[in-house]
């Protein structure tokens, strides 16, 4: 069974120790996914596996056989930008740019979770239908992605803009 990465099939590494993160960065020359701690503690390595946001540093590549992985390089087709990528630029949702691919992949996964109705720990009424899209809700749901440059406001602004736009559509 192959691992599908950004639409292409890749053979799983022979060494089971290889993380999904090191597979894409070191072996497939897809360095857009970043290594910030390799401890499951910063979120810089966030990718989408079967559409769900996960940490590629804590995922063994062999665990992804038969699954579909999307990295930052696979988010938008061709040279175009995903709407979130453009929103990050517009709102200056980054400085050094190192945590940025992880933030963006995480936001893509988060938006899907919100659409599915997944609550967060600060959701007041767990039993209720529908979620409010308050700023705090987005902050809580994005808290697994650290940013040391302090672009937090711009990141949340960018995601909010996309959420509001999607809600309007």
């Amino acid at each position: 069974m192959a691992i599908t990465i950004n639409g292409s099939d890749v053979e799983a590494p022979g060494d089971a120790r290889v993380s999904l993160l090191d597979l894409v960065r070191d072996r497939l020359n897809l360095p857009g996914t970043k290594k910030g701690c390799n401890q499951g503690a910063c979120g810089a390595c966030t990718v989408l596996v079967d559409g769900e946001r996960v940490l590629s540093c804590m995922t063994l590549a062999v665990q992804c056989e038969g699954r579909s992985v999307t990295t930052i390089e696979g988010l938008a087709a061709g040279g175009a930008l995903h709407s979130l990528q453009q929103a990050f630029i517009d709102h200056d949702g980054f400085q050094c740019g190192y945590c940025t691919p992880g933030q963006i992949c995480s936001a893509v996964g988060m938006i899907a979770e919100i659409e599915r109705g997944v609550p967060s720990v600060i959701t007041a009424d767990l039993g209720g239908e529908g979620l409010s899209l308050s700023r705090e809700e987005i902050q809580e749901r994005m808290s697994g992605n650290l940013c040391r440059c302090g672009a937090h406001n711009g990141i949340i602004d960018a995601i909010s803009e996309i959420l509001v736009r999607e809600a309007a559509e």
């Binding site: 804590m58 996964g109 967060s120 992605n145």
Partner: peptide, 22 residues
């Protein structure tokens, strides 16, 4: 969420969304 809200909330209080997905 309806019958055991403490469990839902405890899980959601742990780690990050990425880790909870894994």
């Amino acid at each position: 969420r309806q019958r055991y809200p403490m469990l839902s909330r405890a899980i959601l209080a742990g780690a990050s969304a990425q880790i909870r997905n894994m």
